[in-house]
Amino acid sequence: MSRSGSLYIERPSIIHRLDGSTKLLLLIGWTAFIFMFMDIRIFSIMIVLGFSLLKVSKIPWKSIKPLTYFVVAFSLINSLILLLVTPQYGSELSGSYTKLISYFGGAITLETVWYAVTLSFKYVSILPITLLFVFTTHPSRFASSLNRIGVSYKVAYAVSIAFRYIPDVKEEMMNIMHAQEARGVAFRKGDASLVKRLRNFVTILVPLLISSLNRIEVVSNALQLRGFGYEKKRTWYNRRPLTINDGISILLMTGLIGLGIYLKSQLTYFWLFY
C-alpha cells in the first residue's frame, strides 16, 4: 500500500515488531486502566512510562510534537472552561472547601484547580499509547490484527479501505473546491460572511457524494469479482505469527489491569495532595 492516510513511520524497533493486535490490546488495556482512576500519582507514572516507550519505538520527536502540543492546549482550554462552569466541582468530590479566588457569583476552590490539573494529566497519560499505536502499526497489518482480536474480517477490511481512500477523498475534495472557487464560490476567510461560507461548503458535499457513490460501485464490483465475502474466513497476506514478545506484552498488560483493580479498591477516587 503505497498511498495511505495513516501516520505510520518505519523504524527498526521492538515495538514495531510487535503484532498489531498486541498493540491494539495494549491500547485498550492502557485506556481502561487510566479510566479507572482520578489520581495524579498514577497518571504521572503512566506518562513517564508512555513517553519512555515512545523513546524505545524510535519515533522522531518532530512527528509527535504537534500532536502532544495539541493535547496540552486542549487540556488547558478544557481546564479553563471547567473552572468557569463548575468552580466547586473538586470540592463536591473531595468534601473539603478551600477558597482560592472569590468573585461575586461564587468562588473557585483549590480542590477544583487540583481537579483540573489531575484531569489534564489524565488526558496526557492516554496520549502516548495512542501515538505509539498510530505511529508504529502499518495500516494493512492493522486490518489483519483487528480480525485477529475477533472483529469480523469484513469490518476489518472496511477500516483498511478507509485508510486507503482518505488521501483520494481529500484530493477529490480539493479538486471540487477549486472548481467551485473558479466559478466564484467563496470558501476563504474575508471573501464572504461566515454563514455564507458555511453554506458554500454544501456545494462541495453533493458532488463529492456522487463521486464517492460511483467509487463505491467500482470498488465493490472489483471486490465481488475477486470473490470477497464468499467464505466465512479469510487469510491475510500481511499477517505474521505471534512472537514471544507479544506474549510477554499481553502478560504485562494483564498484570497492569490486575494491579489497577487492586489499587482501585485501596485508593480513594480523587486524590488530593494534602
Binding site: 469490518v155 472496511a158 478507509a162 477523498v169
Partner: peptide
C-alpha cells in the same frame, strides 16, 4: 447483514467522514 457493497460503503464513508471532519469551526469549549 453486511454485503460487499455495504462494506465498501463503510470504508469510503469513513474516509469521507474523516476527510471532511477537517472542516470544523469551533463554537464552544472544545
Amino acid at each position: 447483514e453486511l454485503s460487499t457493497r455495504s462494506i465498501v460503503a463503510v470504508g469510503i464513508g469513513a474516509a469521507l467522514y474523516a476527510a471532511i471532519s477537517f472542516i470544523a469551526i469551533p463554537i464552544g469549549p472544545n
